[in-house]
Amino acid sequence: MKNSTLIRHTLTHLFIIALGLIMIYPIVWMIVSSFKPNNMIFSDPGLIPKAVTTDNYISGWKGYAGTTFGTFFINALTICALAIIGNLISCTMAAYAFARLKFTGRGLWFAIMMGTMMLPGHVTLVPRYVMFNTFGWVGSILPLVVPKFLATDAFFVFLLVQFIRSLPKEIEEAAIIDGCGKFGVFLRIVVPLAFPAMVTTALFTFLWTWDDFFNHLLYLTRPDTFTVSRALRTFVGDAGAVNNWGGALAMGTLSIIPAFILFFSLQKYFVQGISTTGLKG
């Protein structure tokens, strides 16, 4: 009995490892190939390069229309930082109201909020574009950032509501008895206690904003405002042909580094975020 369990476990391990290797092979290949000379990426597709070079990074970094990837990284990081600040403020405020405060119409608003979570963004797409165009915002980062200050990512409101509801009420009640108002309770008690859920919110806001392509394609029209994901598209020609494969793979590799760092340093927040709201992906 013992022996058969051991064999079964070993086989399971081997299977999981083998499948895991196949799964991450494309990504490992991209990283390795980004260090190969451009003409060897396809003639020598193995994982151990015959020659190593950083030429791809130099040629890829030059970017597009005179703007380097340095600017693209700064643009993307700026948008991400503002999106995180916006989501943290607006979503936590809304979540506190839904989770803890009693008010007229709470049930209705909460149902509407949950409904917007499932709403395909395309039904608001054209009017939003027209509206931002009227404001003169198309071509700037405002259409990407301002909605975040208005809690439009209902996923995070829901995540934070779930988390705040799970907190013990007694601390807040004690604070109210001690004369603390609702704003005091929010700032001094709820925000510090909801910190883990706020980290999850910040984390996914970063990843989605970083990887977002559609909105960047719509609203960022000048090359000097491009983000990393928008700029990577410029490696692919209109018919889908790619001229500088080495550069594309090198900049692609750089573009996934932030996600990697966040993933391995904040793993438990990932699991929490995914299992409470089934975050898309």
Binding site: I24, P26, G252
Partner: peptide
């Protein structure tokens, strides 16, 4: 937990433009 992390990596990166470009190549 380690395996889970490895299996999650494609999901972590899959939506990015970098992976779409890579897919073309593959």
């Amino acid at each position: 937990s380690f395996y889970r992390a490895v299996y999650y990596i494609p999901t972590l990166l899959g939506g990015s433009v970098a992976i779409a470009v890579l897919w073309r190549k593959l």
